[in-house]
Write a protein that binds this DNA or RNA. Structure first.
Lengths: 343, 343
DNA sequence: TCATCGCTCCAAAGCGGTTTGGAAAATCCG
DNA sequence: CGGATTTTCCAAACCGCTTTGGAGCGATGA
């Protein structure tokens, strides 16, 4: 069923039917109702491509799956983020498209998406400390928004981000307040901007407490369970082991807990642990009471907020770059306690 | 840059330029090269919507994000599956679109996507034992392929699936061969078809070994770490506890390991564990040597295979339903060993 | 009574491609 | 050399929608 045949069935012109369905005032309420009723009866939907061609907008937003090679890691937050974003986008009539780079040249795909007119905007995921995609997209002139920030970029750009620095400063301070002075940081990959910010928050809190940072207590890698486990084992075997550990992700924290238990220690008593928690739906931090003390920020909510900002940006690009800072909450669970005098 | 202006710059008609770029034989090699060169120079890309409108194909495949309410779980395999599928789709010039249901009526969105002509085909994720979406899509007449199967459906349909029954039969037999007779099954949600098949494979192997299945040794829920932990605790406190546990996912297996260690037992010696492993990029079963003995099948590879089958199906729907069975491999890790006589 | 206005509605021109049905030019062949 | 054939190219229709620029018509007001 297309517009033409629907118009014929109603004995109206395509113009009138189109206007009736799109809420234009040039059509009487009576005909509007008649048209709407018929549209429902015949299950009519305007063809997306034709509509897009006529309006010049595709009502699609793209996100590039990070990782060009097969062996790179798919971000574990991907599912929840996309879930939150698509739901919000759907409310505004937008669809979400996932693209993927086959070559190394990620810029190419943005250029192509724009030249093809395939999407109205893109979402930038996982920015590095100085992400080249931002100036690239500025040059191309396609609306976009970044999930996270890129410290090294001075040009203006829109973003939605968690206040990683502050949340890790608070978490660290929470530990120093409990008397901890040997605090380890098991961080994500530090070319990623969020990891960098977390480290600087951690650093600030140590400085404030007059604690010298110890490079042996810091590490950086992909946030897997095994990584948390291995690093914790290493840390616990140090001559002067940490009494508290800060973790960048729930998955790593699970590995941390395993290493602690395996050493015959008790988490929250012998070693305190605070983790960041993206509130992933398949990786909840306990059901009702939190297992880990955590800095929590729902990545699903972030996706929804980002989508809303992006939609606003598409319809009014001149409204300038938008920024939205999400404050993580510090939830206190059973994994932290006062520092114990070393035996 | 559009076709018209490109043609003008070349002093050719739109027809010729279009044909030159699309490989039609009606144009001389010389002009073809001239056109291709100009297309590259001006960074020309045919507009997706216009092309789609003219050809009647959108070159887009949709996948519905499962879970209509905010509290439902996003499938942890989502990211890896989509990564594998989009990469394969991209090779054939297809894009992948993610949609989401706002209402409860999932059928509505398939109808709408089809009526709008927004996509050429859809991917069905997570089929239940008798999934109503299959007859619905048959009725609508849009190409689709199922990731998994639906036992209760007799109508023909295309699918790509892991041989869950066989892999769990083998895993169970592996345990009975080691002398285990009390084998627990920590399964996924059993209205899901894959969970049902795994249980029946487990059942078959028990029957073959002459072991009576004990309902107390089986459970079914969303596959989270906490679930694996809680159920294992419960199992280990039984009067006649299991000596081996079969797990439906790595995440659950991690919880299982935690419960075992917490009980002062050693995994692989006191209690054997075999888990299914989707080979998720952020949840690897050890780096080089596997930690868990596992039935392994890469969900990323499944996504790629499914995408290829779907593309073939789109271009030749009459070639009938396609089926592709993936055999999981049984990798032996450190989590299994001979049954020990109970003390 | 007649120009004016507001309300409905419509014909037709895009949007940017593909594809059909020729036509002109070049090549072949007896 | 001239007709047949092939090669190379083009004008125009079409895909299904939006939107511009009116047209028709009853009501209004001077």
């Amino acid at each position: 069923m297309n517009l033409k045949t629907l118009a014929e069935k109603l004995g109206l012109s395509q113009t009138t039917v189109s206007r009736a369905l799109n809420g234009y005032p040039e059509v009487s309420e009576a005909t509007r109702l008649r048209v709407q009723d018929a549209a429902v009866r015949f299950n009519y939907r305007p063809n997306s491509r034709a509509k897009g061609l006529a309006t010049g907008r595709s009502m699609v937003v793209a996100q590039i799956v990070p990782g060009s090679s097969e062996h790179e890691m798919v971000n574990p937050i991907f599912g929840d983020f996309v879930g939150g974003a698509t739901e919000a986008l759907a409310r505004f009539g937008y669809d979400m498209m996932i693209s993927r780079v086959l070559e190394d040249d990620e810029g190419k795909i943005y250029r192509e998406l724009h030249a093809r007119g395939a999407v109205d905007a893109v979402i930038l995921q996982g920015p590095s400390v100085e992400d080249p995609r931002i100036p690239l997209l500025n040059e191309i002139g396609m609306p976009y928004i970044v999930h996270g920030r890129s410290t090294g970029i001075t040009a203006p750009y829109s973003w939605v981000d968690v206040n990683n620095k502050r949340s890790f400063r608070r978490a660290t301070q929470f530990l120093t307040d409990l008397g901890h002075r040997r605090i380890a940081l098991i961080n994500g990959l530090e070319y990623m901007d969020f990891a960098q910010r977390r480290r600087s928050g951690y650093q600030e809190a140590l400085d404030a407490a007059g604690i010298a940072a110890d490079p042996a207590l810091m590490c950086s890698a992909d946030m897997t369970e095994g990584y948390g486990y291995r690093e914790t084992r290493r840390l616990l075997h140090l001559a002067d082991p940490p009494t508290a550990i800060l973790s960048a992700s729930m998955l790593a924290a699970i590995g941390i807990r395993r290493a602690i238990q395996e050493s015959g220690l008790t988490m929250g008593r012998d070693v305190s642990v605070i983790t960041h928690d993206d509130d992933l739906s398949y990786l909840r931090n306990g059901d009702d009471i939190p297992i880990f003390t955590a800095t929590r920020a729902s990545v699903r909510a972030a996706g929804a907020i980002l989508a809303e900002q992006l939609v606003a940006l598409i319809s009014a690009p001149e409204s300038g770059p938008v920024h939205h800072m999400i404050e993580a909450e510090l939830v206190v669970g059973g994994s932290t306690g006062p520092a114990r005098r070393r035996t």
